[in-house]
Write a protein that binds this DNA or RNA. Structure first.
Lengths: 211, 211
DNA sequence: TCCTTTATAGCACGGTCATGCTACGTTGAT
DNA sequence: ATCAACGTAGCATGACCGTGCTATAAAGGA
């Protein structure tokens, strides 16, 4: 055999090329030819690792969803403060920081958000991609619910809040912020994103817990 | 001449065909051929009214943005209660109803929202469409600011709110709701949309104004 | 050394695309 | 009745697309 290559690694490299093309020119330009050129591979080589163009798309989105899910979990783990004796204000700050993790506040996450928006909107008319859009959606929504439940358990939230309804509101707010950051970066920069999130977290938490 | 036809009307019919194709199969399928077939016209006929495919796209989005802007204005006009003696609770309800006007709560607005999302996301990688995406964005944002200022003038809002920041939050919330309604209709139906909006309006308005 | 396996490369085909150009009716004014 | 203007239709071209298929090169076990 030739160079001894990890096939899965190659597929991931191709997927990264898909991401770059999709960010730069849109997913509809992620043709076999364009992707191969972007990856620096011959068209025949790419086809050695995929059944066809549809296969590339599906792999790329599955890979993206899986990676995004793992990062989400890792960040949640890292920021989870298991210290029940910390002052409530710290818990509130930790909650806000966790929500902020999914916002495109730096270049890397901004790029990730561009790919995310491209994929989830394209999934509406590409049935093969839909399962992964659903998976990402439910991953985030599940995390939000768990965080709000934990916060409520610590008495951080305003009294009488409907957790499920508030989760909807936070979810919609975070995705709306991400969408605006991607589509209108001049109008909604990192500071504005953080400001809106801060305002929202402040409003759903108990004033007594913030002191 | 043959049938005596209003050219502008013809262009609008073609644009409607673009909307239908974009909703059903995505904007990337809105080729000259597909659009002509959808409009029930010969490909040569369509080309008689447009310079080319790019011209069709730009006209379609401009037409969409213009129509959406007019509907927005008309709805705002219709619902604007110029009666300063009405009880505050009615004013709050009117504010919420106005925000609800932009949400895809029925089939027609749902279809409109699908086209909207397709266009604004596509505009990111189609420079010719960007001006109209900006226009729609600023139309909505401007309306929200004016409504919040009017509400604040009537003393409906909580004390100490930053109108501009709150406008960002409402804007992001409305667009996030619309996006979720389009992409995940099963998870976020009309009732959930209304519930989230109601919760939000309740939270930014003065409790005293709601009685 | 040879030969099987695997990576890489690319040709050829049929299809769709946008578009330049030509041709054909149809219509209404002269 | 004639003809210029305009709507309609479609052919020809060249580009890009996905994909079936074949060919070459490299590597490691026999």
């Amino acid at each position: 055999m030739p160079k001894v290559v990890d096939p899965e690694e190659r597929r991931r490299e191709v997927a990264e090329a898909v991401f770059r093309v999709a960010r730069r020119e849109g997913l509809e330009q992620a043709s076999l030819r364009n992707v191969a050129a972007e990856a620096g591979l011959a068209i025949g080589s790419v086809r050695h690792y995929f059944d066809g163009q549809a296969d590339i798309m599906i792999f790329a989105m599955r890979y993206f969803a899986q990676r995004a899910g793992e990062r989400l979990k890792a960040r949640a783990q890292r920021l989870k403060t298991p210290d029940p004796d910390a002052p409530p204000a710290e818990h509130v700050a930790a909650l806000e920081a966790l929500f902020a993790e999914v916002l495109p506040l730096d270049g890397e996450r901004r790029e990730e958000a561009e790919v995310w928006l491209t994929f989830v909107t394209s999934a509406r008319t590409h049935p093969g991609l839909e399962p992964y859009a659903t998976q990402m959606h439910e991953n985030l929504r599940g995390l939000i619910v768990r965080l709000l439940q934990a916060a409520d358990g610590l008495g951080l939230l305003r009294a009488g809040l409907d957790i499920e309804a508030e989760a909807d509101r936070v979810h919609v707010l975070l995705d709306g912020l991400t969408m605006h950051a991607v589509l209108r970066p001049a109008a909604l920069g990192p500071e504005e994103l953080s400001a809106v999130l801060h305002r929202h977290v402040t409003e759903i938490t108990d004033p007594a817990a913030r002191r």
